[in-house]
Design a binder for these strands. Structure first.
Lengths: 161, 161
DNA sequence: CATGAAATCCGTAGATC
DNA sequence: GATCTACGGATTTCATG
């Protein structure tokens, strides 16, 4: 009998494939197969399954923003005005993510409502961006800007989807 | 007149290549060439240059942590003990980065010294991780844990045109 | 679920303009 | 730089165990 159900539990091989692809998204399927000790066609099928099931949601190039003229990065904590409704919250999130300066947006529970990771040219551009596009938003009550001196990422992550 | 033995400035084609690769790191060179209207061999050379010069620093698969059993994420602000020297700072960063739960580490200027992005199974695991591995570090003075309700990372660093 | 074989497509180097 | 050509290798499909 054929099994039409999608594989739900990941085995050790899947985890190794995920780790290898997270470390190098352009590793060849042949190399991937050699590492886990399976045939290329088998590995190809597994990776396709991981993509289709959403465990791997995409592949991306990592870009050095400093070399593109965005040498200054910051984490901007944002508090919305009291009584902001759900519509206002998603509105701000959509507003923020539309700017090319915005790298990441975290929607938080706690003191801050959002944490916005931005990359800009210099401190002048940072001030302008925060004042005009974050503090300037009608629902924003306050912001706290923290300069990022250094940054490390272990793996690309997509959380809730 | 023009002396461009080593390409230092990125032209519009380079920016489109970067944007396309940031959005889909596994796009084929042939497809990339079709999009920018140049020959595959030409595009291949340009992309290699972008990689060698460090503008593109790598490729990575985006992994859905929730589907791997890490459904809860948090941003943990960390303040180190007063008087911590540079060695202590880098020591903490290396310490934090080593854990599989740690997705990103931001080394900051401002109230917090670090912001640590973690992905764990549940609130119990979060508490355990923070207490044992962050608050428990001898140089850590205080932490502020913010649950991440939603998260968005920009697919590309800049618009196409 | 894994495999080998086959067909197709792609990456990459080299010569030319 | 950009292009075409050419070839070695990779991806991908499919029948089979």
């Amino acid at each position: 009998m054929e099994r039409k159900t999608l594989r739900q539990d990941l085995d050790d091989v899947d985890r190794r494939l995920i780790a290898a692809l997270a470390a190098d998204g352009r590793i060849t399927n042949a190399e991937l197969a050699a590492r886990v000790g399976l045939a290329p066609s088998t590995v190809h099928g597994r990776v396709q399954s991981l993509i289709q099931s959403g465990v791997i949601s995409g592949f991306t190039a990592t870009v050095n923003k400093a070399k593109l003229g965005f040498g200054l990065q910051a984490l901007v904590g944002v508090t919305l005005a009291p009584g902001a409704r759900q519509a206002s919250i998603t509105d701000f999130a959509d507003h923020a993510r539309a700017f090319p300066e915005v790298v990441q947006v975290f929607f938080l529970g706690g003191v801050d409502d959002f944490m916005v990771h931005v990359a800009v040219a210099d401190s002048s551009a940072l001030r302008t961006f925060v004042v005009e596009h974050i503090s300037g938003h009608p629902r924003v009550a306050s912001t706290r800007t923290n300069i990022i001196f250094d940054y490390h990422r272990s793996a690309s992550v997509e959380s809730f989807r």
